[in-house]
Design a protein around this nucleic acid. Sequence first.
DNA 1: GCGCATGCTGAGCGCGAGCTGAAGGCGAGT
DNA 2: ACTCGCCTTCAGCTCGCGCTCAGCATGCGC
Lengths: 222, 222
Amino acid sequence: MSARVLVIEDAEAIGAAVSSALRESGYEVQHRLDGRQLEADLGRFRPDLVVLDVMLPGRDGFQLLEVIRRSSGAGVVMLTARDGVPDRLRGLAGGADDYVGKPFVLAELVARVSAVLRRLGRTPSTVQVGDLVVDADAGVVMRADQPIELTATELRLLVYLAAQRGRVVSKTQILTAVWGYEDYDPNLVEVHVSAVRRKLEEHGSRLVHTVRGLGYVLRAEE
Amino acid sequence: MSARVLVIEDAEAIGAAVSSALRESGYEVQHRLDGRQLEADLGRFRPDLVVLDVMLPGRDGFQLLEVIRRSSGAGVVMLTARDGVPDRLRGLAGGADDYVGKPFVLAELVARVSAVLRRLGRTPSTVQVGDLVVDADAGVVMRADQPIELTATELRLLVYLAAQRGRVVSKTQILTAVWGYEDYDPNLVEVHVSAVRRKLEEHGSRLVHTVRGLGYVLRAEE
DNA sequence: GCGCATGCTGAGCGCGAGCTGAAGGCGAGT
DNA sequence: ACTCGCCTTCAGCTCGCGCTCAGCATGCGC
């Protein structure tokens, strides 16, 4: 069900941050400090995607990229120096699926990882909750073959709720997942939840429930 | 069964309070005043999670965080100064699993610790007692496939009782675990226990027992 | 039995969580 | 420059919830 992501990053702090951010988005994550056991990891862990730092001790990111391409169907997202244009070019030539320049915002990396996984078809791009179909890839929400018009943030919000369906998510969680904010502004979330809820209900779909004191859930039954 | 938590906090009063609150929630706890023996503790005590103060004599919290990430799979919850936004940012980059700003309510810390442990898969998110299923993650309590409507505090209370099922817990313990209060107000607990009990019994579940003079237990009836 | 301690619960109240309409700001498109 | 749509902030309102209190019930010791 949930995709597996292998993170190869020698800076422990960054690697750990990336790992836990990905874990919170529901991925199964392994973290390595170098690419020495890469072949073994590909075989045993069988990642759907590898987050690869360019600068690594021993074999660098490009060499590892080749290994991955040769012996695995995994997607690859590379971490390059922001200004290192040459890196990006080399990576492009090598065929990574996407790039994120350091320093980066965690939310951006997570977004790119999910985008690549969706593109590769490793993650179902559509989630169904009740009679609602949320297609994150196409950016479309349907109910009974009728499209529901949502704005960009409303869509991101609903996609997140759909991914976490059945689980109560706090406003803080929503804030960090959808906006990347750290400070607590409950009203911002409330306003957008309200908008989403209204549009869904106009189409007869009552799925967004508030759990007072805890947060919101997307679920079918009352 | 019960997870191990290592608390590193140089202020003894705070460390002691945290430790006993965690112990009352059923965790096995070790308390250190600094991080000098961290490596040894990681090896011998093998904590599932470390509660880490940022301000510490000797190596500070961030340095210790790296050590933990490098040599252990333990989760990390950091204690940061409430106003120290830079701390939170540094911590995020460093990859702690969660943060609690000082001053904090004990109950909040305990809640975050359990949340992280659940996320890491060290603690099951659902507990079953008799025919009752308590799912802290989904924020739902079920009996015979029927959801039981509880308020936020009622849920926190029941989750705590469920975690301690079969064990008699005093009102004081409940008070610190669920509310983070220090002063003794038995009636507050009684009122909410009463509410929970009533709602459970409306669904035919008789699990909350009073042990006069000691406290309450959650257990399948004899 | 009596008296005290402990526990239970219905009622009321204040607060704050949550919802929403409105308005300002900003960027994109024309 | 102007318009339009979207995001965000703000303020006012509602109502559910949590807490306190008081009176009653139940145990327990004597």
